[in-house]
Each structure stands twice: as structure tokens, then as C-alpha cells.
Design a protein around this nucleic acid. Structure first.
Length: 383
DNA sequence: AAGACGGGGAC
DNA sequence: GTCCCAGTCTT
């Protein structure tokens, strides 16, 4: 009898599987944490975060009882911070609705925040031996080459085909290994560029290889141009402390701390670098100064706004440049100019608000921040 | 169906 | 510089 594709795939996996910290851990919580961290994130990046996470939150109950601040601090640098917020919330969901145990079926798994179709299939097959397929970036690429799928990656039509292919070839009884085998094959052999086809156990089954078009599969989805934005930030010093503000829970870098800042063009239209250079030519420190006065008086009370206006008269005070930073987010790039506003006298009692804090320079490392704010904080600590 | 959502590594 | 990574949620 002839070997199926799954037979050959699993045979290869039995010999070449990667040794990873979450592999062989019988605790579904450990697998769950790894799957969330691995979303859009490489294995090598995840491993140190995974180890620290399991050390600090060994069980679901530990995570559920933790503060969001501590959770975000441990996630700092991994990106896509909604994953951390969702994982935290889902842990509380599990304690409240499922007796502290991760549910062992696809439907209940999908009710957890941050658990989508991929993660539910992965957990169900790996932890609970359910015959469920799953589909990630690796599996999409491998199946697209193997079966010469021409529908663009991520299109709904393409996804329908790929989910069906994954389910069609799934063997009964080893779905967890089958799913992970596709991913290991995609990560180590059937790579995005320069795939090692001569080492592939499925070479003779591969339609793209047969046609010599491996590098043309999968068909990428057309990309849009990334807009360029400008921003200004304020380093407001008082004694040995600096003013931090906390971002709102939702959206970009939600719940993280930063130095007070704003985009120069809130009515950004998304077109062209011309707008960017026009904004760069504007009077940025003056714009920032006005923003701070408005922001402080509307958000943080008139007392602090008054003290700030007295110390830094908008007509006469010209702040020094602290630094210029360029950063690329997923869907836009930003150039940020930071300016200094040093109070002559210590005024720590000014500005009381849950989303505002005077922080000693030495304590900045305790506050969860995005990369840009972290860079600024580190420069401040060195000076 | 398309966009929001981070940061880093490989080329 | 570009691509893309063990995707999910929102609009």
C-alpha cells in the first residue's frame, strides 16, 4: 500500500521535530501561552518571554490574579499588546466560567478572548487529541506550494481551499503532531525564500516543485503603501523625576506608558511624503507647547496647567530638542521630535491623575512602554 | 473584505 | 529598504 502525505509528513516529523520548551509539557495552559505568544512572532523571539512568563505566572490562577500592569511589563517588547490584555482577560474568564481549567473543546475555546480559529485548532489537537486541523502562515505556504494554490494568500477564497486541504489530509489520532509537523516543515524546509526542496519529504508530491515555481507560491496579496506621520513629545522634568502618561487601554500600545506626545497632523489624510515634509517645516515646538497647555487643562486639571504655563510661557519659552526618533509600526511610519521642559523647582505634587505619573529616572524601567518611549527613557537614564 | 495591531530577523 | 513571522479583532 502507498504512503499518504500525512504518513510521510509524520515520519519526517518523528525524526526532525524541533525541541521547544512547550513541546511535551502536558499542561494545556503552557501550550495556550505559547500559541498566543507565537502569533505573528518567531519562535526564537518567543522562547525567553515564554520562560519568564511561566516562571512568573505558573498557572492560570496566577495570571488571573495578576495586575494588567504586571502582565504588560512582562509582555513589553513582544508587540501586539492586545494579546497580553486578551490572555489576561481570558485567564479570568477561565477561572470564572470553566472552573480554572482550559476548556477541552473547540467551541468553548473560541469563546476565550484572543483565541481564534488557528489557536483553537492548535490547542484542541495538541492538548486534547481532537482531530482538528489548523492553519497558520507556515501551513498556508506549504499547502499552497504542495497543491499549487493560486488564490492570493489571505483571500477568503484561498483560505477556504487551504482549510479544506488541511482537513482532507488530517490523519485520525495524531492531529496535534500533524499540525505541528506542517509548521516545522514550513519553518525549517519550506521557508518563504530559498526553500530546501532537496531535503523535503514531500518533494515528490509537490506540484509547485514539479513545475519549478516554488518561489511563485504562495501568491502574495498586494500591499498598500505605508503612510508617513510626524509627532512631537515632551520630556517634562521636575527634580529627578519625569512626567509619564498612560495610553488608553484600547488601540496602539494600549495600556503602555509614554512621554506626553501627539501627532502633528491629526487630520492626516494618508497621502504622500510632501505632507510630511510640510509638517516637518512647521514650528513643531510651538505646536507641542500649545498641545500640552490644552491637554493638561482639559485632562489633568487647571492647577497643573497653570503652573506649567507660568514656568514655560508660550510666548517666550523655546524648548531645547531632546532627540529625534524614527520608528516603523505595522501600518505607518513616524518621525518623532522630543523637546525638553525642565521645571526649575520640584513640583511633584502637581498633576494627580490615574493616567499621569511623576517617575524617578531610575524607576522608568518598571513602567511598561513601547520601543520608542523605551529608547527615550534609556537616553534620559544615561544623561 | 479590509484595516488595525509591534517588533525583529533575514536578505 | 522589503518581507513576514504558530493571527485576532474591529469596522
Amino acid at each position: 500500500m502507498t504512503l499518504t502525505i500525512a504518513d510521510r509528513l509524520l515520519h519526517w516529523y518523528d525524526q526532525h521535530r524541533r525541541q521547544l520548551p512547550w513541546r511535551g509539557d502536558p499542561d494545556p495552559y503552557a501550550v495556550w501561552v505559547s500559541e498566543i505568544m507565537l502569533q505573528q512572532t518567531r519562535v526564537d523571539t518567543v522562547i525567553p518571554y515564554y520562560d519568564r512568563w511561566l516562571a512568573q505566572f505558573p498557572a492560570i490562577a496566577d495570571l488571573a490574579a495578576a495586575s494588567l500592569e504586571d502582565v504588560l511589563k512582562l509582555w513589553e517588547g513582544l508587540g501586539y499588546y492586545s494579546r497580553a490584555r486578551n490572555l489576561h482577560q481570558a485567564a479570568q474568564q477561565v477561572v470564572r466560567d470553566f472552573g480554572g481549567q482550559l476548556p477541552n473543546n473547540l467551541q468553548d475555546l473560541r469563546t476565550l478572548s484572543g483565541v481564534g480559529r488557528y489557536t483553537a485548532g492548535a490547542i484542541a489537537s495538541i492538548c486534547f487529541d481532537l482531530d482538528e486541523p489548523t492553519l497558520d502562515g507556515n501551513i498556508r505556504r506549504v499547502l499552497s506550494r504542495l497543491f499549487d494554490v493560486v488564490e492570493p494568500l489571505g483571500s477568503s477564497q484561498g483560505d477556504r481551499i487551504l482549510w479544506e486541504l488541511a482537513r482532507t489530509h488530517l490523519p485520525s489520532g495524531r492531529a496535534g503532531d500533524y499540525n505541528q509537523a506542517w509548521m516545522d516543515l514550513g519553518a525549517t524546509i519550506c521557508t518563504p525564500r530559498n526553500p530546501q526542496c532537496e531535503l523535503c519529504p514531500l518533494r515528490s508530491d509537490c506540484q509547485a516543485y514539479g513545475l519549478g515555481i516554488q518561489s511563485d507560491r504562495p501568491v502574495p496579496k498586494p500591499r498598500k503603501q505605508i503612510p508617513q506621520r510626524s509627532a512631537v513629545a515632551a520630556i517634562i522634568l521636575s527634580g529627578s523625576k519625569v512626567l509619564l502618561t498612560k495610553r488608553q487601554e484600547k488601540g496602539l500600545l494600549g495600556g503602555l506608558w509614554e512621554f506626553p506626545c501627539c501627532y502633528v497632523d491629526e487630520n492626516f489624510t494618508g497621502d504622500s511624503l510632501q505632507d510630511a515634509s510640510r509638517r516637518e517645516g512647521a514650528n513643531l515646538p510651538k505646536f507641542l507647547h500649545q498641545f500640552l497647555l490644552t491637554e493638561f487643562s482639559t485632562e489633568f486639571g487647571s492647577e497643573f496647567a497653570t503652573a506649567f504655563a507660568k514656568e514655560f510661557p508660550v510666548e517666550t519659552y523655546v524648548p531645547n530638542l531632546f532627540g529625534t526618533y524614527k520608528h516603523a509600526y505595522t501600518h505607518f511610519r513616524v518621525t518623532l521630535h522630543a523637546y525638553l521642559f525642565p521645571f526649575k523647582e520640584s513640583s511633584e505634587k502637581l498633576g494627580k491623575h490615574p493616567c499621569l505619573d511623576w517617575v524617578a529616572i531610575a524607576e522608568l524601567s518598571n513602567y511598561p512602554m513601547g520601543k520608542l518611549a523605551r529608547q527615550m527613557a534609556q537616553k534620559l537614564a544615561k544623561a
